[in-house]
Design a binder for these strands. Sequence first.
DNA 1: CCGAAACAGGACCATTCAGGTCTTTAATTA
DNA 2: TAATTAAAGACCTGAATGGTCCTGTTTCGG
Lengths: 154, 154
Amino acid sequence: MLKLSRLADYAIVILVKLGEQDGVVTSPALAAITGVPEPTVAKVLKVLSAHGFVLSQRGAKGGYRLARSLADMSVASVIAAVDGQIALTACVGGRECDTGLSCGLCGSWDVINTAIRSTLEGISLESMRPKEACSTVLSQINKLNATHTVREGA
Amino acid sequence: MLKLSRLADYAIVILVKLGEQDGVVTSPALAAITGVPEPTVAKVLKVLSAHGFVLSQRGAKGGYRLARSLADMSVASVIAAVDGQIALTACVGGRECDTGLSCGLCGSWDVINTAIRSTLEGISLESMRPKEACSTVLSQINKLNATHTVREGA
DNA sequence: CCGAAACAGGACCATTCAGGTCTTTAATTA
DNA sequence: TAATTAAAGACCTGAATGGTCCTGTTTCGG
C-alpha cells in the first residue's frame, strides 16, 4: 500500500518534537515525549546523527539537538536518510527489472519516482508541525488520558 | 524505502502488456509475455478482474482482456486496487497514530498522502508504454540474452 | 580520581507480511 | 461429455522490518 516504514515515520515525529524543545534532549526524554520505545528512539537518533540532522553531545548532561532549522529539512531527505533512496520500483535508471527482460517498461518508472521524490522534497518538516486547532484537540485528548494522574490547567 | 509492492508492479506491467494484445489472452500466455510466474499472474489478474480493470471469460478459449483503454487507467487506481489505499502512514484522516497520543502531527500526513496520490493519479498506464528508443535498447538486450538460443534479425 | 550518565556502534532475535504455490470448484465450448 | 480455463481460497516460505540488548567510549559531577 505504498507505505512509509515506521522508522521513517518515527524519525519525522522525533525531529519535529526535538525542534520544539530547547537545549539538548536525551533519548529517554524524547521517548517520553513521543511515546516511542526508548531503544527505538535511540536507534533512530543515531541514524539521524550520522546523517547530520541532529547534533549529539556525549557524556553526562549530553543529548541531542537539531543541527539546523526544521524549515531546512525536507520530508524526502529524512526518509532517504532512514530508509534509503526513494524509489517505487527496483528498475530505476533505465535498468531492467529482475523479472527477466520482458518488462519493457524501462525508464517509465523513473517518471513516477521523480514525481514522488520532488513532491516529498517540497514538504519541509516545519510544515509538519501541528496546527493550532489541531493542538487544541490533542491537548483535550491528552487531558482525557491523564485524568487519573495529573490535571494540568483544567 | 517507500517502495511499491511487487504485486502492484506486476499488475501495471501485465495491464500494459495486455493492452498490446488483441482478443482474449490466457494467464499462461501473459506469464510467457511478461516473464512473471504463471500462478502469480493468475493471482494478479483475479484482483484486477474483481476491480474492473480486466474482463474475464471462463471456459475453453477463455482468457482476459482490458475492460477499458490504458489511457483511462491511472497508476494510482491500479496500486489502490492491488495494495489498498495509498497512504504513507497509519495516521490518516486526522486520527492519531498507534504510538499513543504523543505524535501531535495529526493531519499533517494528509498533506503528504494527498500530494502523492494526486501525483500518481495524473499518470496513466498509457504513458507507461515503452517508448520507441527504449524498445530498441530492449531488443538489443534481448538479443544478447538469446545468443545461444535464437538469433533473430542479426 | 572515581562513578554515573549518556551516546556510539554493533549484534541479535522475533514477528510480520508479502510473494508464491497448490487444490478444488465452476463455467464454457467443442 | 470431455477438455480447457478462470475463480476462489487455503497454505507455506522466506525476507525484511522493527525492536531489544550489550559492550564500549566520552563527559560531567562529586
